[in-house]
Design a protein around this nucleic acid. Structure first.
Lengths: 195, 195
DNA sequence: ATCTTAACGCGAATAGTCTTGCTTTAAGCG
DNA sequence: CGCTTAAAGCAAGACTATTCGCGTTAAGAT
């Protein structure tokens, strides 16, 4: 269980507070599995979670902010970056993992959440998640370098592997599969060799 | 001006019909320049366009469908695929063009529209636009082949150039610039040479 | 054990969204 | 030029979503 994402409460971190949060998050995920984001409403979440509507409005304000919060938590808690001993192994494991996530029922929700500007002020929006993940991936690349391999930059990794996977999820219904993920890894490694 | 997208009316293609459509589309674009999609409402569009709310509800049903329609029309009418005489020239012109579009105020709207499932039944959703554009791009690649160049496949083009540009628009606020676009073209051409 | 108070639950009030029946306008046709 | 009729305008009304005040609960502290 991680710390609050929406807003750091000055006190009362655990207990009922957390129970409500958990119930709401679960309800949102449940409902998103059953129907599209567009069909989701705060009233529904309230009913499903047993938490009163007013509470949800008070804590999250809008549906967009709520979904964004839930998605962020999901992504943050998601599996660690792999460490298989070889760059290729790491990349393949990672790519396959992302391909699965993005092809899953929540794939479109994740992507759409990135596009919904919910953070009111400052808040670097998505960067929160991306930076954390970016750091982990950078470590993966560093490990490869330490082994004497010739890894790509983080940006190259994002552009050559992540971007196409997301792109497919956005525009083609067909799920991106493991084979495709491996093709992308080949492409990235080919680029690195070349340099 | 293209034919209806929402639903082919059995009769009455031009005249007032078209005037209303134009007014509404313009209003939507206007408003999307001034504020986010989330702040947009049908009531607003009605006021700005001078078209009655009920009319908009009857023709488009939901805000999502309306925005989707407008966006699709925008994308469809957008500039033709370049023909500069060289593959590299074509690719660069195309990439720079896309980079500009996607970094513009409507960039996020375009992307988000792709994620909103508005088409009720069958309707291949985005494929409509993507296929048309795909066809044009394929022709561009064919021209290169006819000249004796060694062009990439359409899929490679989409994955190596388009996908990263979209990715940047989604996750980094920083506008993708022309320089970045050219880097991507280099990468794509490097891949083709290698084969 | 008791106190303090942030957060919750509840129901009512408000505001905003969407639908509907009817009237009016004007495009396309004879 | 005058019909016919799809589509637009209008306004009332139904339905949702959102906010608010107030009483209640329970977490954290003494």
């Amino acid at each position: 269980m991680s710390a609050m994402a929406a807003q750091e409460p000055v006190r009362r971190p655990g207990g009922r507070n957390a129970r409500v949060r958990t119930a709401v998050c679960e309800a949102v995920l449940d409902l998103l599995h059953e129907a599209d984001w567009d069909d989701l409403s705060i009233a529904q979440v309230a009913e499903r979670s047993g938490v009163h509507q007013a509470t949800i409005y008070r804590r999250w304000g809008t549906l967009g902010a709520l979904v964004d919060d839930v998605v962020t938590e999901q992504l943050t808690r998601s599996s660690p970056v792999p460490d298989t001993g070889t760059l290729r192994g790491d990349l393949e494991a990672y790519a396959v993992q992302v391909a699965e996530d993005v092809a899953g029922p929540l794939g479109p929700v994740f992507l759409r959440a990135a596009l919904v500007g919910t953070r009111p002020e400052g808040e670097p929006s998505k960067q929160v998640y991306l930076l954390e993940r970016g750091t982990q991936l950078q470590k993966m690349l560093d490990r490869a370098r330490d082994r004497g391999e010739n890894p790509p930059t983080l940006l190259e990794l994002l552009e050559v592997i992540l971007a196409p996977l997301y792109f497919h999820a956005m525009f083609f219904e067909r799920p991106t599969n493991a084979h495709h993920a491996r093709t992308l890894v080949d492409r990235l490694l080919a680029l690195s060799e070349k340099k």
